[in-house]
Nucleic acid binder design. Sequence first.
DNA 1: CATTTTTTTGCATTTTTTTGCTTGTTTATA
DNA 2: TATAAACAAGCAAAAAAATGCAAAAAAATG
Lengths: 248, 248
Amino acid sequence: MLKRERQAFILKQINLHNRVLSSDLSTEMQVSEDTIRRDLLELSNTDKLIKVHGGALSKSFHSSFLREDIYQLDAKKMIANKALNLIKDGMFVLTSGGTTIIELARILPVELKATFFTGSIPAAYEYAKHPNIEVIFIGDKISKGSQITVGGEAIMKINSIKPDLCLLGVNAIDLTNGVTDNDWDVVQVKKAMVEAASKTAVLTITEKMNTCQKLKICEINQVAYLITEMDHQADLFKAYANTGIEIL
Amino acid sequence: MLKRERQAFILKQINLHNRVLSSDLSTEMQVSEDTIRRDLLELSNTDKLIKVHGGALSKSFHSSFLREDIYQLDAKKMIANKALNLIKDGMFVLTSGGTTIIELARILPVELKATFFTGSIPAAYEYAKHPNIEVIFIGDKISKGSQITVGGEAIMKINSIKPDLCLLGVNAIDLTNGVTDNDWDVVQVKKAMVEAASKTAVLTITEKMNTCQKLKICEINQVAYLITEMDHQADLFKAYANTGIEIL
DNA sequence: CATTTTTTTGCATTTTTTTGCTTGTTTATA
DNA sequence: TATAAACAAGCAAAAAAATGCAAAAAAATG
């Protein structure tokens, strides 16, 4: 393993877990702890991380997109991990934005080769870091609130593709109203995404389940997978499973 | 094995595995490591890969970590400040990517109301933070090395707009060859940008002046403004000013 | 075709970088 | 305070890089 690769790996671990132990890194990468220490020293000298006794911590403002104040980060990480199972080599994946999707973008395994379409700036930013993923950005006007592109151009572009999978971070889902949201522009885009994709997976923390907002994105039966942080056998999901949705 | 073949093989390996070792290449192609080193040096000089101790890494790999340390940041801030003078309320501005443009994006005054078009992820991210700026993202495939969109869709989109001003961060400019760059895809997009805009401003640190790369973006006389960190009366600019370019 | 020039390549030598190890010191914490 | 872990500094071996040089190959020239 080359020195630069090692340092890249360390930074990735730091961005993923916010902290690393020298001993872990040493065994993971099969080099002596001295080497790790020297790497950490270099990275800390260039302000890439904060070196502490035994390892290193992430510089809170190091990443362009702050993660400190993400609501229910652990739950979202868990969701992202489950969602990984749906993504296979060679797939064309269309994704929305949102913090859950961004967590997913961060943990995509390096060996994965796939093509990702998105209109989300932070998501595209994360995808673009990945060595083997081709990223197609769906351009148009950027909605300030959500950092994703909205508008006719974007929708036309989405209509012109046929991805295998759509990963949708959503704000509200319930049995009778389906997937809903409050932002008109965003709803138009997400609608188009669900229509375009062969299958749609909905990612949400359970807190948002059985809630409803003003505008409909799609019906429950258009959703193939529901991914939350809870065990898929929980009672909460019974009624959803009955509609044919696969709970992960 | 011919030199050209060898270098093509190296690039193929880089695209395949994101990394190569000089020693591997040496045995695989039955040439001395010196030769490999010289090949890697050449490829690195034309920005095809990142040369590191022991081998080389793919550009996309590199972009995934060492981004925070911006070269000549102070100079770039100064350039950004000068460029501000060109941007007026109500303008439609088309911008490339690059660290200088991103500095500019960061210091746009809050009162400014304008519409910005860009294909650069980090630039769009900065523009989107601004309260009064409308951001239109030019979508297409994202080039890993430079974090900007490239390709036919992007170029078509650029051709369909008529911005007042194009702000171009460039890597090389000289009197006889004009504005040049090394990345074919990026050159296509920048070409389209210059063609589309009423006026083009070139932003560059003086270090890159009077240097030349392999592919032409535009002639000197297509540039309306040249913005560097140095005083506009410096001798360095005399010849440029004579061609009618306004030096800021 | 002969000859000059340029490019390419490998080799020897020196220099630099990287890495693991040892030794003695510091630090965290039970 | 005791103790194990982590650290810093220096050292040495190995790997890689830079440098200069010369032979071979290729290209250009008359």
